[in-house]
């Protein structure tokens, strides 16, 4: 086959691309995406906090919260795998890039999928700024 034939064949066939983001792309259901907690099930074993390779998760047993620093998460699925009670799940989405230095906090009593947005601890933000310089 030559490229001319291939070009003409492509011209007559349906395009392979989609007009993302106006159209949906198919994301596999097991795509490693955003980490979410179902706080009703958490037994405060802190395994996710201990095993997270980037230390993105902070478990606060007293305040009954799980906090994740989104920019630190590398979506390796370790926390989901170690969780003994299936508290943690991963939503199959592609993570959006962004500069936000935010932490998301999941607390007992919140509805499923709900979280509060906070700022990264000051010490860490300073550290990042120092590193930048």
């Amino acid at each position: 086959m030559s490229m001319i034939v291939s070009s003409l064949k492509n011209l007559l066939s349906k395009p392979d691309t989609v007009r993302y983001p106006f159209e949906r792309t198919d994301i596999p259901s097991n795509n490693r995406g955003r980490v979410v907690w179902d706080m009703e099930r958490c037994i405060w074993c802190r395994l996710c906090e201990k095993n997270c390779p980037t230390k993105a998760i902070v478990t606060d047993k007293a305040a009954k919260t799980q906090t994740i620093t989104r920019v630190r998460c590398i979506q390796c699925r370790t926390c989901v795998d170690v969780c003994p009670t299936n508290t943690i799940a991963m939503e199959p989405v592609y993570s959006e890039p962004g500069p936000a230095r935010e932490v998301h906090t999941y607390a007992v009593g919140m509805k499923k999928g709900e979280y509060t947005v906070g700022l990264m601890p000051l010490s860490e933000r300073d550290e990042t700024r120092l590193r930048k310089r």
Binding site: I27, P28, N30, N31, R32, I74, Q75, C76, R77, M90
Partner: peptide, 10 residues
């Protein structure tokens, strides 16, 4: 590979 492993690159 995304379907198999959950990630396109890593």
């Amino acid at each position: 590979v995304n379907r198999i492993s959950g990630g396109r690159v890593h």
